[in-house]
C-alpha cells in the first residue's frame, strides 16, 4: 500500500460512539456497522488530513507493545476501502 495516501471517511457515513453497544459504529443509509476496538481506533484517526503513514506512526507510538501494527493498519485500510467506508486519495 502507498502510505502517502490520505484516507477520508465516505462523506455519506457517520462514525460515532454508541454507549448502548459499547463500541464505535458506522452509520449509513438504513445501515449500521459495529466496529471492533482496533477498527474503531484506526477509523478515529481518519480525518481527511493524515496520511496512512501518519496514522501508523501515531498508533505505533500509542501502542508500542502491539507487534505488526503497521500491517494491521494497512490491511484494515484495504478492507475499509473495499467496503467503501473510506476513500484513499
Amino acid at each position: 500500500m502507498n502510505r502517502d495516501l490520505i484516507p477520508s471517511l465516505n462523506k455519506h457515513f457517520r462514525m460515532q460512539w454508541e454507549e448502548a453497544q459499547g463500541c464505535y459504529v458506522l452509520l449509513y443509509p438504513e445501515g449500521m456497522v459495529k466496529l471492533n476496538e482496533s477498527a474503531g481506533l484506526i477509523l478515529a484517526c481518519v480525518d481527511g488530513q493524515q496520511t496512512v503513514a501518519d496514522i501508523i506512526s501515531d498508533l505505533a507510538a500509542r501502542f508500542p507493545d502491539v507487534e505488526g501494527i503497521a500491517i494491521d493498519i494497512e490491511e484494515f485500510m484495504a478492507t475499509a476501502s473495499a467496503q467503501r467506508w473510506i476513500e484513499l486519495a
Binding site: E18, E19, A20, Q21, V25, L27, E30, M32
Partner: peptide, 8 residues
C-alpha cells in the same frame, strides 16, 4: 436512551 441509532 434505549440505544436506537437508526431512525426511519
Amino acid at each position: 436512551q434505549l440505544g436506537a441509532a437508526q431512525l426511519g
